[in-house]
Computed example of a mutant assay.
Amino acid sequence: MNERTRRPRRSAIGGVDIFGILRERISSHALPPGSRLREQDLASEFDVSRARIREAFGALEQRGLIERIPNRGAVVVRLDPRQMYDLYDVRRVLEAYVARLAAERAPEGAWAELVERFGRPLEKSIADGDFDTYLNALEALHARMVEHAGNSILADMLDLIGDKTQVISRRVIILPGRAEIGLKMHRQLLAALARRDPDAAEAEMREILSSARDYLEKFHNFVI
């Protein structure tokens, strides 16, 4: 059992963030598709009532991460290939627009830290098989783009579908050659953002997600 599992983090109001912890376990594949979530076991782990666990289950179900099956309980949703392709198509539209807005609205020098972060050290991390460092860098870039885009509706939409795509993204990243290709493409995206070129930033983001979707189709038997 890892540190994240042993020590439940606390929410801002002092309670255990059960939804956040379970959401993270699902996205990191610590709870793979088909896993059963038992109310009593989780209530004991987090030292809360079963009603609190059911409340977290409701939020997870609303996001499409689990389903509650009669006589079986809560189960992590298995990934449907068609739905995954559709999600990538939606992301391609939404995130390309986010990239455009971020290029237009970010202040001068806003991307310098990330340009450095996507430099040689990250290249070495990938070569060493440290995909978590690469994934963290991608998440930081995504969060910064959403922040500078300044569109709360877009942010909410991406947050909603992000839970479902994060599981797949973690698997796509480790496919042969994918991280190296992705790093090169994200460097090109950062270059477009840094020079405040919205057309290029939008095009680069579309290409990144089109390429990821192509990998998903090519290796779908391994990924899904």
Rank of each mutant, 00 (worst) to 15 (best):
A149S: 12
G150Q: 06
N151D: 15
I168F: 06
N136W: 01
I174M: 08
L175Q: 15
A149W: 05
R170L: 11
E147R: 08
L135V: 11
D130F: 02
D156W: 08
D132E: 15
R120G: 00
A140C: 05
V146I: 09
K164R: 15
L160G: 05
H148W: 14
K124N: 05
M145H: 08
G119Q: 00
L154G: 08
F131G: 10
E116C: 00
I126C: 07
M157T: 09
G119W: 03
K164C: 14
V172W: 01
P121F: 02
L160S: 11
E123R: 10
I168M: 03
P121V: 05
L141E: 05
R178C: 07
H142R: 15
A149E: 01
D130N: 14
A143L: 03
L175N: 08
S125C: 07
R171F: 06
M157Q: 08
S152I: 07
A137W: 01
R171H: 09
H148A: 13
A143D: 12
E139Y: 02
G119E: 03
I126L: 07
E116F: 04
I168Q: 01
N151E: 14
L158E: 11
D128P: 02
E147H: 12
N151A: 10
R120E: 11
A149G: 08
G119L: 06
V167P: 01
A127G: 06
M145Y: 07
F131S: 06
R170K: 10
L154R: 05
T165P: 00
D132A: 15
S152V: 12
L141F: 04
L141W: 07
L141R: 05
A127E: 09
F131I: 04
M145Q: 15
V146H: 08
G119R: 02
E139H: 09
T133I: 08
P176N: 07
Q166W: 07
E147K: 10
A140M: 03
D132G: 10
V172I: 15
R144T: 13
G129F: 00
E116W: 02
K164I: 08
Q166K: 15
G162Y: 04
V146M: 14
D156P: 01
I161M: 11
H142V: 03
M145G: 07
F118E: 01
T165Y: 01
A140S: 13
A149V: 06
S169R: 11
I153F: 11
L122G: 09
R144V: 04
L138R: 13
T133Q: 07
R170V: 04
R170G: 11
V146A: 14
N136G: 10
H148N: 05
R178T: 12
L135F: 12
S125V: 02
S125N: 09
E116N: 13
D163C: 10
D163Y: 12
V167G: 03
R117S: 12
H148Y: 14
D130G: 06
D132M: 10
D156L: 11
V115Y: 00
R170C: 09
A149R: 06
K164P: 00
K164M: 15
I174P: 08
R117V: 04
R170F: 05
G177V: 00
R144L: 15
N151K: 01
M145A: 10
A143P: 00
P176M: 00
K124L: 14
F118D: 04
D163A: 13
R120M: 12
L135W: 02
E147W: 06
S125K: 00
